[in-house]
Each structure stands twice: as C-alpha cells, then as structure tokens.
Design a binder for these strands. Structure first.
Lengths: 325, 325
DNA sequence: GCCGAGACTGTGAGCGCTCCCAGAAAGTGG
DNA sequence: CCACTTTCTGGGAGCGCTCACAGTCTCGGC
C-alpha cells in the first residue's frame, strides 16, 4: 500500500480513501491511485483490514443436519445457490460449514465465535440444538431458514408458510371427495414436521392415529412410512406426504401394492421440487419459493449486522395441482 | 491476550507459545495459561494471526461450473463432503465458492488472490478457463479434481483412471457379444469427456461417427443423445454412457422405443452413483471412488502448501456388473 | 478583505497477534 | 568450580491496514 502511495505520489491515507469509496479524494489523486494500483498489481490484505475494522465481510452458512441431506435434498442446494448469489452481489463471502455431529457443532461454534464471520445463516437446525444458544451468547447475528423451534422470539428467521400450505393441500384433497386422508410427516423436531401436521389437523381435526406416519424427508423413509400406512389403514384414499422426495418413495410403494394414482389413492407432496414433475404421475404439491427464502435471509442478516434488529418473514405457499390428485 | 497473560501471571509471549503448541513452556505456566484462557473465554483473533503469519488456515473449494450441476450431479456433493471432513480434521476451513459465469470467475480470481486462502481445490474446471492461469501467476497452490486439460505438468491433480475404466466397460460389452457399441460422451472440454472416449477407441479403434453422441452429464442430455443415436444407428446393440445420470435418460428413451435392456441393447454407465442401483434394470457401471479422490486432493494440497511440490494421483477404476449388460 | 464552511491531504496511533532476541534459570560434563 | 548447552521467559518490533485528527487550500457570502 505504501508502494502504491509512492507510485501515485500521495499518502497511505489517500490510497485508503480510494479503496473505501473514494470520498474526499480529488479526481487527480483518484486516477493516479487507480493507475498505481493497476501498475503494482496491488490487492488489499483482508486480514489487516479486518483487524482494524473488526469485520470480516463474510458470513457462515451452517448446515446443521445429522445426515447427508445436502446430497439428497435439492432444497438445500437451491438455498445455497440463492444465498451465494445474493451475497456475491454485496461482495460478501459465503463460508459453507457442515455441522452434522454434535462434535462438529462444538467445533463450528468455536470457529464461528473466533471472529471469522460477521453473521450466520442457520439451515436445518433441529429443536434443542445447543448451537443456537452458543451463538446467541456471543451476540452473533443469526438468521435461520425455517422457524427455529423454541427460539422464535430470539433470532430472525425466514420461513415458508408451512401450516397454510398443508391446509391448502388437505383441503384440496377433501374437495376431491377424499375422506380417509393419511399423512406422512417430516421429523417432529423440525418446523416442517410440526407445522405441516398442524395444518393437516386444522382441516381434519384430531387425526386417526392409524393415518399418521413419520418420515425424515428421505425417499426411503417415505416408502417405509407408506408401507406402514397401507398396513394399518388399507382403506385410505389419499395421503399427504410432507416432501416430494418422500412422496416419490410413497408412490413407488402404492404402485407396487397395485393402487392406481389418483383413482385409488390421491397423493400430495410438498416443495414443488424437480422430483414432483419428473414423477409419474406428476405430483400435486405445495410450492415454496426457496430462491426467495435465500434472498430474504441475506437481507435480514445484513439488517441484523448493521442495525442489530430481529425480525421474521413468512412467505406464502401455493398449491400446484397436477395429476396425482 | 494481554488479559489472559495478566490473569495467568505470565507475558504475552508465553500465552502465544501455549496457543501454538506449548513448546518451551513450563508445566506450571502451561496450566496457568490454560486456566486463564478458560476463565476469560478468550479466543484468538484469526485476522491478527493471519496478518503476521501470512497464512489463513483456510482453503477454497472452487466449483467452476454452472451452478445447477451441484444439484443434479451427486459426485460434487460427495467430493464436497469428503473435502470438508478431511480439512476439518486438519483444522482448516473450507470456503465454498461457485464460479459459474465468466464474470464469477473474475471475481473469484480477485478474491482468492487477495490472500483469503492458502490454496485452492479446483473442481470441474473446463479446458481453456482463464482461472487456472490467473491463480498460477499468483503462485497459489492448486489441486484439481480430474485431469486439468492443458495444465497437466503445471498443477497437481487427482483423477480416476477414466480411460482405463472406459476400456474395461467396453471390453465387457464386447465379451457379452455386442458388436454395434455406441457411446454417449461427456463434454469434450472435460477430461471425463475426452478420456472415456479415448478408452472406447482403445478397444474399438476409430469409431463409426454414427455411434458417437455428446451429452453434458445431465439426465436430459443423455435422453437427447440416445434419441439421436437410435435415429442414426437403429441397429446398435449396446451403448456406453459416460455417466450414470445420462444413462438414466438413455434407458428411459430406449424403453420408450420398445427396446429391452439388456436383451436388445446393453447399457453401461459410469460413476457407480446411487442412480445406478436405483435404476431398473440396475446399471452395470464403472466405480470411481470420489471419497478417496477428496482425501487425496486435500493431502496433495497440503503438501503443496508446505513444500511447494507438484504431483498427480491417478486412482484405479473398477467395473461393477449389474443387470443392464 | 475577512471569515467560516467545505473539500482534500498527510501523519500517528493502534487493531491483536507472532517472531526474534536477549537474558535468566536449570541442567551437564570435565 | 567453571564453561557450555538447553529450557524457559519477557519485551520490542512490526505484519498492513483504517481511523481520527490536524492541517492546507479553495470558495462563496457579507
């Protein structure tokens, strides 16, 4: 930097001003410095800058999930893509961190609080995870994807309206004349697990326990849950599966059991992922706009970093009717 | 840090020594410092450390591809997961960066050379990309996944033995009595595109151009290529598809055309991904061990960072025979 | 012509750490 | 007992930057 200053015939201070927006710099000095920068091939040392500004201009994307879900669930990929883009536009670096095991979470907690990042995007945090508390005590800005169960009033989050989406889908199934509507839920320690079940109950009231089975959003778990349901309630005429991926598994089981879709059993999914359209029959599902979620998350996080506030954004969900209902 | 020193009754120097391995520190001082660290909740400031050490203890994972591939191609996910783990064990942070567009690559180039990282893992770099040259002029350690076309002697890389894998598969098809063996290649500016075709040619010699079609590793492109092949060479009795995902598309087209697999047309894939076993019929394919690739990449990169060397690792590939041939 | 309000510039201090060096203390061999 | 090495310690310097401050210069208003 001193070199640049010398080449440009100005002082360090002026170079610094050029680097940080160019306010209070004369046109002559500006061009001289810019030329000197190009000539010397100078690039700022982020570490030195961060040392004095106490900011790192980077944020962490923490994927906090026990399984290899990133690889199976396309929703994560969409979120990641959206956040990467939204942050790149703001010249902020995204650091991806996977914290599957409890030990990982410890390590990540340490790492994050060491000042590496200005804020945290929390994805797929299950209820009761210690990570949130640790981050909160450090005062780090956080935005969660999905309602952070037990922390709704403490940290910002962006979520799709799971409950309303579930309501829409179940009402749609009823309007199609279905009366024995089963549900395959997500994990009950995730908002998608809890809230979609709640939406189902909003429409149908307290459910027959034989019509409820749990999954973990994977295709396999959807298949297993469907088998269980068929065994317990062979007379079901519809099933609301809380993710498209699980719905794929459920559809395969139904078809193997000789059920026609949608004639014998109507199937509704959730997410409106690629899988929904590539399935046969194409799935009726609930669209949630993950691209929008990521944009909102980044916006909220930056708000939180600069002004320290806290807020929640609930995005609408939309019924997409296709061939499976 | 000064606080820790005071609490422990020692100097900054001693605290620093404890933080960096504890050599030349008396047992008394060691325990005193450790207790003081716990008491004060001290965590090192990475930026200050990096400023003096000129290291960042983090590396970049640059995915240089249109972003949608991350979602569709599970190989990336496996690589990413493997690298994350291998680096976590070494207490090195992985920064994921997606550089799909040319403009992205510029931005990433700038960013990487700003000293944010000690090295770079390059994934899915196409031939002729300017990124490699820019990184090389900065003298940054690089390890590529897959043979970096045109830079084999300049930068380190880890690759599966694509050519031999292709040979194995095509020879297997021949041993099954197939005589009209077509190929659906990957993009011809990627090593997987070039080398697998070369392996095919090793066995069959210069191919009938009607038996060669190009894809881009996506399922759709596999389907399109298969349609083309069926049109141009309706008498083909086998097809070597250069990725499992494309093979899925090809299989669907063949089945729609009334061809039985493997009776009428044998199909071979590449990757041994999950898709290969979930397909019907299950795919004969070539296994390449991506988990191993990621481990080797991290090892090579660290070698390169510490000792500055350059080397290449070619991992063996293995034929996995299933029902499609 | 003087004054005050900008616009612009250079300089010193210091962010929190590691590294080097000088020196004290402790151990080793003759 | 004295050299001599080895272990251990503290303090100064400085990594490359930003920020606050003091100072200069210009210009419009009275």
């Amino acid at each position: 930097m001193e070199d640049v200053a010398e080449v440009a015939g100005v002082s360090r201070g002026t170079v610094s001003r050029v680097l940080n927006g160019g306010h209070y710099v004369s046109p002559d000095a500006l061009t001289a410095v810019q030329r000197a920068i190009r000539k010397t091939g100078y690039v700022v040392n982020q570490h030195a800058r961060s040392l004095v500004t106490q900011r790192s201009d980077s944020i962490a994307f923490i994927l906090s999930d026990p399984q290899d879900r990133l690889f199976e669930d396309p929703n994560f990929a969409i979120l990641l893509k959206g956040c990467t883009q939204a942050l790149a536009e703001r010249d902020i670096t995204l650091l991806l961190t996977v914290a599957g095991t409890q030990e990982d979470r410890k390590r990540v907690g340490r790492w994050v609080t060491a000042g590496h990042v200005d804020g945290v995007l929390l994805v797929s945090e299950h209820a009761g995870s210690p990570l949130i508390n640790e981050l909160r005590t450090r005062g780090l800005p956080i935005v969660a994807a999905g309602r952070p169960i037990g922390h709704e009033r403490e940290i910002s989050y962006v979520a799709a309206d799971d409950r309303d989406g579930a309501r829409q889908l179940v009402e749609h199934l009823r309007s199609r004349g279905r009366r024995r509507i089963a549900i395959i839920t997500g994990p009950i320690d995730t908002p998608g697990g809890v809230d979609r079940l709640a939406g189902y109950q909003d429409v149908l009231g307290e459910p027959d326990p034989r019509l409820v089975a749990n999954g973990d959003y994977t295709q396999d778990s959807g298949a297993r849950a469907m088998e269980e349901l068929l065994h317990r309630a062979p007379d079901l005429d519809a099933v609301f599966v809380c993710s498209d991926l699980m719905a794929l598994g459920a559809v395969a089981v139904l078809q193997r059991a000789g059920k026609r879709i949608p004639e014998d059993v109507a199937v509704g999914g959730f997410d409106d992922s690629k899988a929904a359209v590539s399935a046969t029959p194409q799935l009726t599902t609930i669209r949630q706009d993950f691209a929008r979620v990521s944009v909102e998350m980044v916006r909220l996080l930056q708000d939180s970093i600069t002004s320290g506030g806290r807020s929640a954004v609930i995005l609408p969900t939309e019924l997409v009717v296709r061939d499976s209902t």
